[in-house]
Computed example of a mutant assay.
Amino acid sequence: MLDEESPLPETAADVEDLARRLRGHIDQLGVMVPNEEPALRHAQQLGSAGVPDGYVPSRVYLVQLAKATRELAATVGTCGQQRGRCRWTPRINVLRGTVFALALACLVLAASVPRT
């Protein structure tokens, strides 16, 4: 990530390379937090945008992308300390479907037992 004292990239190829690397970091960190996490959404939105043309706009974009990546990394660290908060929880329809499938399996099992 970019540090406060890091020199800005000089060429457009350097900018593209650094943006690609930051996007890779966002992808790697994104699997460690829930999809609903605001830091992840913000970082992904910035990462999906193209690098703007021009010297100043492209460097501003890189700084914003680096800050979003740093914020996402901090969120991953927070999730590691508060394990209960960042666990995946199934959506209500997944739970309903699971209960329905279990009930149907019990009904089929009960119907297949011979009566004496």
Score class of each variant (00 low, 15 high):
44 Q>C: 07
106 C>V: 08
5 E>K: 12
17 D>A: 15
5 E>C: 04
59 R>E: 03
67 K>V: 12
115 R>S: 11
97 G>F: 04
31 V>G: 05
58 S>F: 05
91 R>Q: 10
116 T>W: 14
10 E>D: 10
58 S>T: 05
89 T>K: 13
21 R>I: 07
75 T>H: 00
7 P>T: 15
57 P>H: 08
67 K>S: 13
64 Q>W: 04
83 R>V: 11
79 C>N: 00
5 E>H: 11
33 V>L: 05
86 C>G: 03
35 N>F: 11
112 S>V: 09
16 E>Y: 05
25 H>Q: 15
18 L>H: 03
96 R>D: 08
69 T>D: 02
86 C>P: 02
69 T>L: 03
66 A>H: 04
67 K>C: 07
79 C>P: 00
3 D>F: 08
90 P>D: 06
61 Y>P: 02
49 A>G: 10
74 A>V: 08
66 A>Y: 01
92 I>Y: 10
45 Q>P: 02
75 T>P: 01
30 G>T: 04
9 P>D: 05
32 M>S: 13
35 N>D: 15
4 E>K: 06
76 V>L: 05
43 A>S: 06
102 L>H: 12
66 A>E: 01
16 E>Q: 14
1 M>T: 11
107 L>K: 06
115 R>L: 15
21 R>T: 10
93 N>K: 13
105 A>Q: 08
104 L>P: 03
104 L>C: 10
62 L>E: 02
27 D>Y: 10
35 N>L: 14
45 Q>R: 12
103 A>P: 01
4 E>Y: 09
28 Q>G: 13
36 E>V: 11
112 S>R: 15
10 E>V: 11
37 E>N: 14
58 S>M: 05
100 F>H: 12
17 D>M: 07
12 A>W: 09
87 R>L: 12
8 L>I: 02
9 P>S: 09
57 P>R: 06
55 Y>G: 04
72 L>S: 01
